[in-house]
Amino acid sequence: MLDAKDKKSLYIGILLAILVLVQWSVGMFLAPVDAMQGQVYRIIFLHVPAAFTAFFSAFMLFIYSILALKSKKDSYQQMCKATAEVGLIFTAITLLTGSIWGRPTWGVWWTWDARLTTTLLLAILYAGYLLLYSSLEPGPGRTKACAILGILISADVPVIYQSVNWWRTLHQPQSMLRKGGATMDPLILWTVVAGILILILFSIWLIVQRKTNIALQDELETKSFQQIK
């Protein structure tokens, strides 16, 4: 049986999932066909929000890592781990959709543009973070090490982005994967913007769910040890 709090969060989750589906549907069916790319461009309605969400997770990791370091409370540490997991999922989605978009549009599965490259490096860093988390004994030592790594990773993301951006602009004209500029159809633009906001909210919901999950797991572990004693 679900208690009141779980029910509330379930309803919020369902609402957000519906919003995501609505946004995709608008993108799939209502937005106009692109003159150059045809139907395949529609993947940006998932790709761009996923990219923003992946980076937003890095920002959340930064904030919660600082909180975990300052207050040493378990709940902040659990939020950090949840953020890294959800961040990894969204970086994976970004990379996958980027590939799917790139292949029919420009004939390549991959390109070293600033955003994709930074997303790839961020995915590797999230994986490293989770690997560190699982390689350390639970306790204040792990909280501190992971919190500090979280700060380092998220502080590095803008630096990585800027360096790759400069590197690419030196070698080839403006990235092909720009959202477009002033010439973008307003419906497309707003659908993408809405998608970014909705997906970020959805990711926050996922992070909170996952954090609750991790907290319960920790509690279960502690209690089961105590039972054995």
Partner: peptide
């Protein structure tokens, strides 16, 4: 004074 310590397990 009143030093207390334990691991998760005990």
């Amino acid at each position: 004074r009143e030093l207390t310590f334990g691991f998760r397990s005990r």
